[in-house]
């Protein structure tokens, strides 16, 4: 079987298009998704294939079109809502958190909400503090939703298909920095199930746990640390809700050291949740407390050098791993 190398953004497009071909109830809406082929060209060609009834350009009103899509989902359709940036979803917090996530519960099981909210999450590169939001820690706190963060093209397609087929609201977090990365994506139909973390690098000395873009920094750090004789195992959590703590625990029981790398701010974050669970399930296996690497506790800086310094970058990860493994 030959390799088919495509971009992350095209993998997303294939996932949506294939699901829309298979299921007439699936449709896409969002700002610039139709005539402009998507602000990030993810929905390129979809208007031509599916027409304006299923690929819908919306006004700049996240609260409005999110609420409309939630209504459609309650009535049996399966909408995909594209946020140009998850930063803009904040104005739609009431519909996506109060309505979508709670609908099944509050309707006593009468109405579900099979919807996908997707878009760019995290610092895209000099977008300033209001457009660089990492929403995972904020939103993952809410029960009733699922949250997925793909790292490569293969997972992007397989996980987005799983998201579209899921009967629950799925918050699908992409990274602008990963859209142009390429990877092997098979021709044939496949999905990547939720709640199954992926050990992306085997190692013996320290477990690195991360989601999405910061995994890139983890790989860089692992290479640097390997030169110092520290062998890192890297776990891509893939989904935050559900969280595959079992895979993480298994790894930490082997390495006895753990660093969680999370692009959220540290306070009450994904990192703190994962660390807490590792502490609970690996208590007698830890040689040191679980170390955490986050974005600095300030609004995202605009200046390029400051933004780099602010992120959970390679330097911070290396320092954390050295500390966690007593190699300072």
């Amino acid at each position: 079987m030959s390799e088919r190398i495509i971009e992350f953004r095209d993998a997303l497009c294939e996932a949506m298009s294939e699901e829309m071909r298979d299921d007439q109830k699936v449709f896409l809406l969002g700002e610039e998704v139709a005539q402009y082929n998507g602000a990030y060209k993810i929905s390129k060609g979809m208007l031509d294939e599916f027409g304006p009834r299923r690929v819908i350009d919306t006004p700049i009103s996240e609260s409005g079109f999110s609420g409309m899509a939630i209504g459609a989902a309650m009535r049996g359709l399966r909408p995909i809502v594209e946020f140009m940036s998850w930063s803009f979803s904040l104005v739609a917090a009431d519909p996506i958190l109060n309505n979508a996530a709670k609908m099944l519960y509050m309707s006593g099981g009468q109405f579900g909400c099979p919807i996908v909210f997707r878009g760019n999450d995290g610092a895209g590169g000099q977008l300033g503090s209001t457009h660089s939001w990492c929403v995972e820690s904020l939103y993952a706190n809410v029960p009733g939703l699922k949250m997925a963060i793909p790292y490569d093209a293969y997972d992007a397609k397989g996980m987005l298909k799983t998201a579209i087929r899921d009967d629950n609201p799925v918050f699908f977090l992409e990274s602008e920095r990963l859209l142009s990365t390429t990877g092997h994506v098979p021709q044939e139909d496949y999905t990547v199930p939720f709640g199954q973390a992926f050990v992306r690098r085997q190692g013996t000395d320290c477990t690195l746990i991360s989601f999405g873009r910061p995994l890139h920094f983890c790989f860089e750090a692992a290479e640097e640390l390997a030169k110092e004789g520290i062998d890192c195992e890297i776990i891509d959590g893939r989904t935050i809700r559900p969280l595959d703590i079992d895979t993480m625990v298994k790894s930490v029981k082997k390495t006895n050291a753990c660093v969680v790398v999370d692009q959220s701010w540290s306070f009450a974050s994904i990192g703190s949740e994962v660390a807490s669970q590792i502490h609970r399930y690996c208590f007698d296996d830890l040689d040191n407390f679980v170390h955490r690497v986050h974005s600095d506790d300030v609004p995202t800086p605009y200046a390029s050098n400051l933004e780099q310094a602010y992120l959970p970058n390679t330097r911070k990860i290396c320092e954390a791993v050295r500390s966690a493994t007593y190699n300072t």
């Binding site: 007698d284 296996d285 040191n288």
Partner: peptide, 9 residues
């Protein structure tokens, strides 16, 4: 004295 949990185990 302090000892890490895994060291104790």
């Amino acid at each position: 004295m302090t000892i890490s949990p895994v060291a104790r185990r």
